[in-house]
């Protein structure tokens, strides 16, 4: 929505004050409702679909391939495609780069290891299906997609299945290519249930006045002073912690106390979000069912 100066100042004042009121009457640390399903694309190892009620939808797929390499940072490739944006647009490139770097930095490469020479390489393809119609003439940017995309990636990685390895792994120096069982019924999880490792999540928070807003909506983004993206992994705050431009309008500098407050907020909401995502993973999906 394109906001007038009066509307902007009204929204700003109601957000910045002591008892802030958000435009959709959420609490400061409350998400908008999200829906998600996973494992619905049969020819991918893992897949997920996350969408929120204003129509923004993100489909993520994980495909695995066996390669021979020593370079661990090659093992994860992320590709973001936003509807109506060119592949080489700044938005697509910076979203892919941020997600890729964040995943590589916080990944347990042991789950991808087959032998000392062979690894699984993961391709994470992210498709943002529809962007709001007024995107072109409004001042918000779509960097807030980061949080939606990271949840999609989390679900796709956690739901990914790999074929059962049948060749021996006793001799890790082994030269031969690993071989796998043909039966998909025997497939194992990419991230085993007993493993402590969890993929990382990125949260986008908005800073306004002395308040930290979780999951800012599009009209809130237009008045925020600044935006931050904060990584969360297994109960801890991890890189990236950086500011993102949520709006093309001029931002302001923020108090550094606010940064600590933002980190605290993310630490608080991280666990409930992870639990919610886990419960989605545990819901059975019928391959021919109605997930749309």
């Amino acid at each position: 929505m394109v906001l007038s100066t009066a509307e902007k100042s009204y929204i700003y004042d109601s957000l910045a004050g002591e008892n802030s009121t958000r435009t959709d009457s959420r609490k400061n640390n409350e998400f908008r409702p999200l829906k998600a399903v996973c494992s619905f694309v049969p020819n991918c190892n893992g897949s997920s679909r996350v969408y929120n009620p204003d129509g923004i939808e993100c489909i993520t797929s994980v495909k695995a391939k066996v390669i021979r390499t020593k370079e661990l940072s090659d093992l994860i490739n992320v590709d973001v495609d936003v509807e109506g944006q060119r592949d080489n647009s700044t938005l697509c490139l910076s979203l892919s780069a941020m997600i890729q770097r964040a995943l590589v930095n916080n990944f347990d490469f042991e789950v991808l290891r087959l032998t000392d020479k062979y690894y699984f390489q993961l391709y994470v393809d992210i498709l943002v299906l529809s962007v709001p119609g007024d995107f072109k003439n409004s001042s918000y940017t779509l960097y807030s997609l980061l949080s939606l995309i990271s949840m999609g990636t989390y679900l796709a990685l956690k739901s990914a299945k790999l074929p059962l390895l049948t060749s021996t792994t006793n001799d890790r120096e082994i030269e031969e290519e690993p071989s796998f069982a043909d039966d998909w019924e025997l497939a194992t999880d990419l991230i085993p249930a007993e493993s402590k490792f969890q993929p990382m999540l990125i949260f986008v928070v908005g800073l306004v006045g002395s308040n930290v807003l979780v999951d800012p909506s599009l009209d809130e983004e237009e008045v925020l002073e600044s935006g931050l993206c904060i990584g969360y992994c297994q109960g801890n705050i991890v890189a990236p912690i950086q500011s993102v431009a949520l709006s093309t309008a001029d931002g302001k500098a923020f108090n550094r106390k606010l940064l600590t407050k933002a980190l605290e907020t993310v630490k608080q909401i991280g666990q409930p979000v992870v639990e919610a995502l886990e419960s989605i993973l545990n819901t059975e999906v019928d391959e021919y069912g109605s997930f749309f």
């Binding site: 020819n43 991918c44 489909i59 797929s61 495909k63 495609d81 509807e83 391709y123 393809d125 498709l127």
Partner: peptide, 16 residues
């Protein structure tokens, strides 16, 4: 038409 790389069995990127 949006033909993402994961749609076919073998991952393949198609130009727009």
């Amino acid at each position: 038409i949006n033909y993402p790389p994961f749609a076919s069995n073998e991952r393949k990127k198609r130009p727009k």
